[in-house]
Design a protein around this nucleic acid. Structure first.
Lengths: 205, 205
DNA sequence: TCATCCATAAGGGAAAACCCTTATATCAGC
DNA sequence: GCTGATATAAGGGTTTTCCCTTATGGATGA
């Protein structure tokens, strides 16, 4: 897993610096940006970001605009907004869109530190989940179409005989595919197979 | 499933009435309350509530206070706050605690209607999920301790022989329990069993 | 053209699951 | 003491899975 990184985005140099120094007291690596577009241009930061501390009102791309962009990139980093000019609709919108928190300046330093730490933990969990999911999807993608058909039957609780009838092939062929499915998915019981398929969300429910 | 109900809570008679009438144009049953405590006292409303439209500032128990109480009751109804006096920390807090939305007065009527409808749909989905979960939990609770032990082994992908060794009993006894588990859980394949156990969140992951 | 992957299929045997019945011992409640 | 639920165990037979090998035809690709 990549080393965690907290991104601080604020066009005010003094604020950016002080927030950065504050968060560094947690022992977390921090990278500061004077504009939202600078963040999007930094691939390394995007890849490592475990939390984004974000001013709402900035020239160029706003904080809300950056949130939208990150959502479109399916970026999983929790976003903590920090703003002196927040209004009710803005906060509600940001939170609906999944912002981790919205703090009003001037904020209590300890509150920000607490929220950043929670956010980083959440990000780490999301990354673990995402990595697991990517792993499983990789295995599922390695199945041929026919193996996938057979797997669907297995997960649906069908007997080999029934799967053979469903697909119009012989039971022996089903056995063959079934063995390949177990091998490629790296499981050694039907229970494990069903478990990972259900958890990966690839069972249509 | 109970008939849906939208609860409107506002100490201002005129506001309460107008919001109520507005929401009734959706064809949804509405019940209005002048105070948060009145809601908590109305068991029928609590049981049916699919959405709570809630003023923040009220004498007695505040809107935020009612949200807390409902959370403690594990009530699943989405809450839409409506307030003329919202500030940033209040909105952030309400949304963090799971509020469905936070609208500022005066609000656009269509926005409220849209959000109420979304909330009611969400509530219906939560109720379906909850009912399913309660059903499954009921079945799981009907298992004896030993049957539960055997089921855990089954879901973990253990063979009957291995389960027998784990529990220090004979394979024949495991077979007996296994059959009872399938019967009580009303499934007819291991795949189905694993599926419902995983989905019910009773597998420790 | 040759190698590789894929889907198909079969034989054969070991292991496991599934389904039925019967039976004993314990324990709780009426 | 009887009843019912529970945990235990076994016999016996059918079905299914699991694992091995072998084999053919088609498609892909270097």
């Amino acid at each position: 897993m990549d080393e965690p990184l907290v991104c601080v985005v604020d066009d005010d140099d003094a604020v950016r610096l002080s927030i950065g120094l504050l968060i560094e007291t947690l022992g977390l690596p921090v990278r500061s940006f004077a504009s939202a577009l600078d963040v999007l241009a930094d691939d390394d930061a995007l890849a490592r970001a475990h939390c984004v501390v974000l001013d709402v009102r900035m020239p160029g791309l706003s904080g809300v605009g950056l949130q939208e962009r990150l959502l479109r990139l399916e970026h999983s980093a929790p976003i903590i907004f920090v703003s002196a000019h927040g209004d009710v609709p803005m906060v509600a919108r940001a939170m609906r869109e999944g912002a981790f928190d919205f703090l009003q300046k001037p904020f209590n330093e300890q509150v920000l530190l607490d929220r950043v730490q929670e956010a980083v933990q959440l990000a780490a969990q999301r990354r673990r989940d995402g990595a697991w999911l990517a792993d499983i999807h990789g295995r599922l993608d390695s199945l041929t179409a026919r193996e996938r058909d057979v797997m669907d039957g297995m997960v649906a609780g069908r007997l080999n005989k029934q799967i053979a009838e469903d697909l119009g092939i012989s039971m022996k062929t089903v056995e063959q595919h079934r063995a390949r499915v177990m091998e490629k998915l790296q499981v050694d019981s039907l229970a494990e197979l069903v478990r990972i398929v259900v958890r990966s969300g690839c069972d249509g429910g």
